[in-house]
Structures are given as C-alpha cells and as structure tokens.
Amino acid sequence: MRRATTSWSDQQVEEILGNLLRTGVVLAAIVVLVGGFIYLYRHGASAPNYGVFHGEPTGLRTVSGIVTEALSLRGRGLIQLGLILLIATPVARVAFSLFAFVRQKDYTYIAVTMFVLGLLIYSLTGGYL
C-alpha cells in the first residue's frame, strides 16, 4: 500500500517541477518590478553611469546585505532580492530532483545531484577558493 507513494514516476516529478519553476519566476519578477518602481521613482532623474565598471557596494553583493536593504524597502535592495529569488528557482529544481531520486532509491543519481547541489550552494554562499 505504501508502494504507490514511495516511488514517483518521472512524469509526476516533472509536473510538480514545472509549477515550482513558474511560481518562482513570477514571484521573482513581481519583487523586481516593485523594486524597479521604487528605484526609478527615487533615482529616475539622475544620470546613469554604466560605462565604467566599479563593482556593486557590499550591501548589494551578499545575501545578508541584500536582505537588510530590501527590508528597509530600498529599490535596489528589492531588485537584488528578486534576482536572488530567481537564482533560487533552478537551485530548488535541483534540490527537488534530489528528493525525487531519493524516493526512487536511485543511488547513482543521488550522488550526481548532491554534487551539483553542493557546487550551487558553494557559489551562492560566496564561492571562496
């Protein structure tokens, strides 16, 4: 009786994944849009400077910095938060695949997926060598 729930078909897994991805993208786009309105409302009349690379300030480079900026409803902080949400969607997809492979007891692919997930987490947490 437990058999039906312990092993999902690949098709079922993919349908759940599809919904997960769409939700993630829509959510990210809404946060970016709201942040964009705030940013343009406050800074729309200033002169742009993208011609010279100077790097983003620390508050807009790290997850903790971005969350702090976003919570104080700063436009740029909110946009970065939306982008982090966006980056999280493929990561969530990999994490979910891991879960599915565990349920299917597919040990080769559990190892493969854990490796990929580990690399993604390494990159997102700073990517220090």
Partner: peptide, 28 residues
C-alpha cells in the same frame, strides 16, 4: 541552462557584476 547560469550567478553577485538598475529592465 538555468542551473548552469545559477552556478556562475553566485560568483557574479559576489564580485559585484550584477547591477540592480541595469538587471531590472533587462530581466523583465
């Protein structure tokens, strides 16, 4: 493509390559 891009996006973020004012209109 999404997973690959997410892998380099973390590094891009930390290096300050992702400018919100520019990424916003591009992404949308």
């Amino acid at each position: 493509i999404g997973v690959t891009a997410a892998a380099s996006a973390g590094i891009y973020f930390n290096r300050g390559y992702i400018d919100p004012g520019l990424a916003m209109p591009v992404m949308l």
